[in-house]
C-alpha cells in the first residue's frame, strides 16, 4: 500500500498494517452484500412458480392407430406420441449400440439405461414411443417420418433421428428427450 510508506500514525511504516486488514475486511463485507442483493435480481428471471407448478397433460390415445402420431403440448413444448409400425420397431432394434452417437436412453421413466429400443419405448408397449419433440441441437421441431433413418428430421441444421428418436447424424448431440409419463389406464397417457 502506497500510503503505508509514510507513517501517518495509524499503523506501522512497513509490511502489513491494521489498516490493510480493515480495508480487506470492509471490501469483503461489501462484496458479500453486493452478491446477496444481486441474487434476487438474477433469480427473478428464472421460471416462476406458475411455470414450475408441474402441470401435467392427460391424453386419450385410444384412437391412435398403427403408424399414426399425435402431438400434445406439455410445459410449452410439443410431445410426440407415435404408435410405430412393426417395421419401424424392427429397424430400431437392429441397430447395434456401437453405431449410436448417444448411448444414453434419456428416459427418466426407467432411471438410467442404454439407448436400446426397449429402453426408449414405453415399458411393455414396444410399439408406443413418447418423446419431447424438440431437437437437441438448437430447439427446432423435427419433422416426423423423414430423414435418412425413417424417424425424424430437423430441417433447421439437418439432424437425423431414427425410428426410436435416437440421434444418428447431424449436429444434435443427444437423443430426443423422453418426458416423465404414466398410464392410469390402457387408453390414457399422462405426461408430467
Amino acid at each position: 500500500m502506497a500510503t503505508t510508506e509514510t507513517n501517518d500514525g495509524h499503523g506501522e511504516a512497513h509490511g502489513e498494517t491494521r489498516r490493510d486488514f480493515l480495508y480487506i475486511a470492509t471490501g469483503a463485507v461489501a462484496a458479500v452484500g453486493i452478491g446477496s442483493i444481486a441474487w434476487p435480481f438474477i433469480d427473478q428471471m428464472n421460471p416462476d412458480a406458475a411455470s414450475l407448478a408441474l402441470a401435467s397433460t392427460s391424453v386419450d390415445i385410444s384412437a391412435l392407430g398403427e403408424g399414426e402420431s399425435m402431438t400434445v403440448m406439455w410445459r410449452g413444448k410439443p410431445v410426440f406420441i407415435r404408435k410405430r409400425t412393426p417395421t419401424e420397431v424392427e429397424e430400431a432394434k437392429e441397430v447395434p449400440l456401437s453405431e449410436l452417437r448417444d448411448t444414453d436412453a434419456r428416459n427418466p421413466n426407467i432411471g438410467t439405461g442404454e439407448a436400446t429400443d426397449a429402453n426408449r419405448a414405453v415399458q411393455g408397449r414396444e410399439d408406443l414411443l413418447v418423446m419431447i419433440g424438440v431437437c437437441t441441437h438448437l430447439g427446432c421441431i423435427p419433422l416426423g417420418q423423414a430423414g435418412d433413418f425413417d424417424g425424424w428430421f430437423c430441417p433447421c441444421h439437418g439432424s437425423h433421428y431414427d425410428t426410436a428418436g435416437r440421434i444418428r447424424r447431424g449436429p444434435a448431440p443427444e437423443n430426443l428427450a423422453i418426458p416423465p409419463y404414466s398410464f392410469p389406464d390402457e387408453s390414457t397417457l399422462v405426461v408430467g
Binding site: I42, M45, N46, P47, S51, R75, G76, K77, V134
Partner: peptide, 8 residues
C-alpha cells in the same frame, strides 16, 4: 431456462 423464464 433462466433466459426464457420458463421451459420454452
Amino acid at each position: 431456462e433462466w433466459l426464457w423464464g420458463g421451459f420454452a
